[in-house]
Design a protein around this nucleic acid. Sequence first.
DNA 1: AATGAATGAGCCTTCATTCAT
DNA 2: GATGAATGAAGGCTCATTCAT
Lengths: 214, 214, 214, 214
Amino acid sequence: MSKTPSSDPIHARTRESLILAAGAVFAEQGFRAATVRDICKSAGANVAAVNYHFRDKAGLYRAVWQYSHHCALRKYPLQHGASEDAKPQDKLRAYISSFLLRIFDKGEIAWFGKLISREMIEPTPVLEALVKEEIQPQLIYLSGIVRCILGPKATDIQVQRSAMSVVSQCVFYHHCGPVIRHLLPHLTFSKSQIEELADHIYKFSLAAMKGLGK
Amino acid sequence: MSKTPSSDPIHARTRESLILAAGAVFAEQGFRAATVRDICKSAGANVAAVNYHFRDKAGLYRAVWQYSHHCALRKYPLQHGASEDAKPQDKLRAYISSFLLRIFDKGEIAWFGKLISREMIEPTPVLEALVKEEIQPQLIYLSGIVRCILGPKATDIQVQRSAMSVVSQCVFYHHCGPVIRHLLPHLTFSKSQIEELADHIYKFSLAAMKGLGK
Amino acid sequence: MSKTPSSDPIHARTRESLILAAGAVFAEQGFRAATVRDICKSAGANVAAVNYHFRDKAGLYRAVWQYSHHCALRKYPLQHGASEDAKPQDKLRAYISSFLLRIFDKGEIAWFGKLISREMIEPTPVLEALVKEEIQPQLIYLSGIVRCILGPKATDIQVQRSAMSVVSQCVFYHHCGPVIRHLLPHLTFSKSQIEELADHIYKFSLAAMKGLGK
Amino acid sequence: MSKTPSSDPIHARTRESLILAAGAVFAEQGFRAATVRDICKSAGANVAAVNYHFRDKAGLYRAVWQYSHHCALRKYPLQHGASEDAKPQDKLRAYISSFLLRIFDKGEIAWFGKLISREMIEPTPVLEALVKEEIQPQLIYLSGIVRCILGPKATDIQVQRSAMSVVSQCVFYHHCGPVIRHLLPHLTFSKSQIEELADHIYKFSLAAMKGLGK
DNA sequence: AATGAATGAGCCTTCATTCAT
DNA sequence: GATGAATGAAGGCTCATTCAT
């Protein structure tokens, strides 16, 4: 339909490689420190390509975010592999494990974790959408599990805070990476180490909630 | 006795106001994004004053760190107001409370929390010193408490991970501030709210450790 | 065939005018004292143009060197117009004459002489390349001539020192320009004066070498 | 006579150490590249000392020049150790030797050589005086010797040019230092090497002049 | 659709000099 | 007489963006 049918895929290719390159650079250096030139060079594209395809640097960042979010959702769906009718304990275990695996995933999905970390410090408009579409539902899902474990006598606020306690332990090792690397240099976050960590968080949180429920 | 001291403060005034202005700017914008010009303007000083007093933008940053660290330590000493021979539970309670209060302190000490948060994302050479001089000792102190609670049968790694679980809960609300503000807009981190939070973390962690100890 | 070449010069125009302007400024003020802003202004270019085309002030300097070197070589080739099988005396005469003409050339090639003079006082990394690619070969060429004149009994070191004696006389008037202008104000280094000078250096050196050879 | 008799020598001490420090720095880095701060630091004086004692940086330079000139004159008087009634050849030999020794002298007098070299490239008002008071008389003295050697038939201009040829050979190795160091790395300008050099220049020039005289 | 040259604002730093003490 | 703090002008360089092609 277009005059140069070969140009569309080419167009898409530049666009995509720009996103891929930018994902790596933004995750590594942050929005501000990343330079358009670096990204374009690493993508094999022209200096003006970013402005051409995404209007400006911020536009590229948004595109990276969407792409990254999309990838992460596809690889780690909400249910975390636990069946609907599994026991709450098992669901909790699966939730924690899945959370850690996702957050410490290597490759393109790792960007997502790093980008989120950065959003915590310097929020951009992108964060609000993330909270509504991703974090909020996750928290509701987790709260359901926590309520089952805490029992019917627990107040809503107890449920909420306990859920936060669980999440906080999961987030911690990723978010405080630089300090952790100094304090516990042996932690490499290999798959087995992540599993051990998940086990600790699970047992710690389960014991806590059982104790609170009494 | 009266003439000499009058000249000293005058000399120090530029230096000090530079630190104060820089603390605010660095905390708000980060090391990179902050500009020397902004800081100087806000301090009412000449552009070259930073170079004169601190050699570098980085030197000014270091000075802000030291100052901020000094303030925080003075207001919230390591023992957190618990007596040496208090019960481990009470020490834990004091530790958590003090941690939260410090991290959510308003004013100049708030910089400290923000600066640390930024160091997690864009570490500077300052971080290493912070870990050694501040975080490491704190962790050892906390680990002592945790060991008492977990009992003699607990392994070192269990102690370590449990201590991390405690710290992670304290850090979480501050570190994930932007998300928390979206999820729980009612949380304003007033003194009473912080106390309630501390109470939850204390009870949750204590129950967890008692459960693990069995 | 007509459209393409028109765009190339346009692209090269800024680059070239930058080199031309820089040549004049560097020759007059030296690398350090010359300012990028001055050069750009004189070239009618933007301040950032230097960075874009040459990466650096130093890069621009290198480019000026190359250009200047290129011009000088083209106008005054190594053989200095003497045929391969000319008599050594005639080769020596041609060498001296050509040396002086080049060093006292007006216009863009004059930069070359001035830049070299400056390199003697404040050497930059450029000097090393110059020695290897230009001065060394010239000296070898001259040494060949000198050896023929001194005869087979002369030692290598005698050849070397005599070659230096020849070169030193050529260099002197240019290198000590400011003093010469004070001492001998009548010397304007017109073409005929240069030729007279060349004649003296030739005769002086030839007589010296013939005397040494005995 | 002054209230604080002890202040005068102290005053002089600062002034003098400033000159000594500046001599080294100016010789090493040149007038422009040398910084007042560096000089003051190396002299153990206050930053404002230069402006206080010498009005400005240029004033300090003038003072260094005078001092340096004074030292050089005292150590190497015009006659160069040759007796009035020595043979012209011997006078020439002494002149060359003395010239080289002075120019390659280590220590404070080395400044003088370096400063002169720099004046050749970037003349300051100081040069004119030097030419009149120092160089001109030296040249006249040398010309007298040269005339004796060349004989009565030589024209004034021949004498002048031959004198220049002698001087140029002496000056060359010092002035083109950086190139020489690349080309003849074995030349360290030790006393014996300087003597050998002097010998060559003497023999080369003498042979030349004897040849010209015929 | 895509490019490479060009731009202008702005950043950190340096430096000789001045000023209050 | 002498100092240390402070200044303002300027310099090299970077960067996101625009523009002509």
